[in-house]
């Protein structure tokens, strides 16, 4: 299996989501091989799932005051606070070994790369349907998928650390009295690499483990050997399209507040 590998570093929320969509368009049009991309978020951002209500989930005033972006993803699922994490995206045409018709199976196949990357870091983890990866009974990775233009786009996070106090200062909670309990719940149910390994794991170390983990895991889908990841960068037209999507879609109230 051959994949185009992009490590695009830090981007704003709107750019990151715009580039994922631009890459999906490139693969759909046959201009790009299937893609594996690694990235992070600067500034920190809150994303909500495609079907969520921004108003119901996010305290936009608190986000503005904290300099945190807030935007809607093209994928379903829940609200995510993107700060100390590494994010990946995978784009493949439907029918590719990473994008079988069965959606849960495709989650499992893509998640295999993260599970393998975690193993390389010394963390035993497993896919927990629908869309999580857990280690020691705690969620360490959340994933979300959509299918458009005949392609799968799946993106997800691997937590380097968790900061539920900061997260809940940006999300709406049913009532303030519950906030303490919610924070304790997240501490019990969610873990970052720092908590799991007892040491700081930086973006670079996690990126290298994920790159190797994806290559090994994806290679096995075709009966052995590693997948070939060809290092690449977004093309000029892809960057232009990402910028346009960032400005016209992922920064627009029409999209972000549409539900």
């Amino acid at each position: 299996m051959k994949l185009r590998f992009l490590e695009t570093g830090a981007g704003t929320g709107a750019f990151n989501m715009g580039l994922d969509e631009a890459l999906l368009e490139s693969v759909a049009a046959g201009r790009s091989a299937p893609v594996l991309r690694l990235y992070r978020w600067e500034p920190a951002a809150v994303t909500i799932g495609y079907f969520q209500s921004m108003e119901a989930e996010v305290d936009l005033e608190a986000c503005r005051a904290a300099g945190v972006d807030a935007l809607r993803r093209s994928t379903g699922g829940g609200a995510v606070f993107h700060a100390a994490e590494i994010t990946y995206s995978v784009v493949a045409p439907e029918g590719h070994p990473l994008a079988p018709a069965d959606i849960l199976e495709s989650y499992r196949r893509v998640a295999g790369g993260i599970v393998e990357g975690l193993a390389l870091l010394g963390v035993e983890a497993a896919f927990a349907p629908i869309n999580d990866i857990t280690a020691a009974g705690r969620k360490v990775s959340g994933n979300a998928q959509t299918r458009k233009l005949g392609c799968l786009l799946q993106h997800g996070t691997l937590l380097l650390d968790v900061d539920p106090e900061r997260m809940f200062s940006l999300l709406r909670v049913p009532n303030e009295k519950l906030k303490g309990k919610l924070i304790e719940d997240v501490k019990a149910r969610v873990a970052g690499l720092k908590g799991l390994l007892g040491r700081e794991v930086g973006y670079g170390e996690a990126a290298e483990a994920l790159r190797r983990g994806f290559a090994a895991s994806f290679g096995r889908l075709e009966g052995g050997g590693g997948a070939t990841l060809e290092a690449s960068a977004p093309t000029g037209p892809e960057l232009e399209r990402a910028a346009a999507l960032a400005a016209e879609k992922y920064s627009s109230p029409a999209w972000n507040l549409k539900r």
């Binding site: 799932g49 079907f51 209500s53 994928t75 379903g76 829940g78 609200a79 959606i103 979300a144 299918r147």
Partner: peptide, 15 residues
């Protein structure tokens, strides 16, 4: 009618 939440639906437009 609006049905919001953290579920997944494919294809989204059909939902």
């Amino acid at each position: 009618v609006r049905v919001a939440g953290d579920f997944f639906a494919h294809p989204e437009a059909s939902f």
